[in-house]
């Protein structure tokens, strides 16, 4: 028994402490967080506008070239794997440009996430009862005031849980950036393995780190949602 734990401690030290190998994981984690954070930013901002364009076109029954472009964008992005998009962005779009790999990854994941986020916002906006719009307009508010003060606060509240889910998915999806040669959290295991000849410990550690971040994000979202729900109390 004692032998077993000694062995365990030895392996742990060998994989993470000797040669400061934990530093490799930490560097990978920072790459993962950087890509996720900036991609999420692009995704939420761009997705919000695409969702708004598509929802208002649907509500008014009018479409224009902008709504078509947004529709095609969502169809193409959702219809192809994110990894293929990443490869296309890095190896085709930025082929001739000396762009940082992380920037390419941020753009690929940001644009991908925008398509999903836009669908979340679109359904969030459409889920607000049409009577809310009518009440706002009947009071003499402009359509912009009605949107800003009446529709969007309710739509965002409806959309928030799904947006949070999308962010969690995004964090985990970035684990394929190794394919364009970035060393993120996932890829850091390979470097440790090449030195220690053992994949078990590094992979376990990486899985645990992802789990901790996701659980943390979920907790944060819960707090957020609870604050937004204060008007539902009876």
């Amino acid at each position: 028994m004692v032998e077993f734990f000694k062995n365990l401690a030895g392996q742990f030290a060998h994989n993470f402490i000797e040669g400061d190998r934990w530093q490799i994981i930490l560097d990978g984690l920072l790459v993962t967080l950087k890509i996720t954070l900036f991609a999420a930013l692009i995704g939420v901002v761009l997705g919000f506008f695409i969702g708004l364009v598509r929802a208002s076109a649907e509500r008014n029954g009018k479409s224009n070239p902008l709504t078509w472009i947004c529709g095609i964008y969502v169809t193409v992005i959702r219809g192809t794997p994110v990894m293929v998009q990443l490869l296309i962005i890095y190896f085709v779009v930025f082929m001739a440009l000396p762009v940082d790999k992380a920037v390419a990854a941020i753009i690929a994941f940001g644009f991908n996430s925008a398509a999903y986020v836009s669908e979340i916002f679109r359904s969030g906006i459409l889920s607000v009862d049409i009577g809310q719009t009518e009440a706002g307009r009947s009071l003499g508010l402009t359509s912009a005031q009605t949107l800003r003060h009446i529709i969007l606060p309710q739509a965002i509240k409806n959309a928030l849980p799904a947006i949070g889910n999308e962010m969690i998915t995004l964090l985990k999806e970035t684990s394929v950036v190794g394919y364009i040669g970035l060393v993120d959290l996932t890829k850091s295991y390979a470097i440790i393995q090449s030195r220690t000849m053992s994949a078990f410990w590094p992979l376990l550690a990486i899985a645990a780190i992802y789990l901790v971040i996701v659980v943390g994000l979920s907790k944060l979202l819960n707090i957020f949602e609870r604050r937004l729900r204060k008007s539902d109390k009876r």
Partner: peptide
């Protein structure tokens, strides 16, 4: 012109 609706349409938030 004020309007009152069947379903009230108060702003819940």
């Amino acid at each position: 012109m004020g309007m009152v609706f069947q379903n009230f349409n108060l702003f819940p938030h």
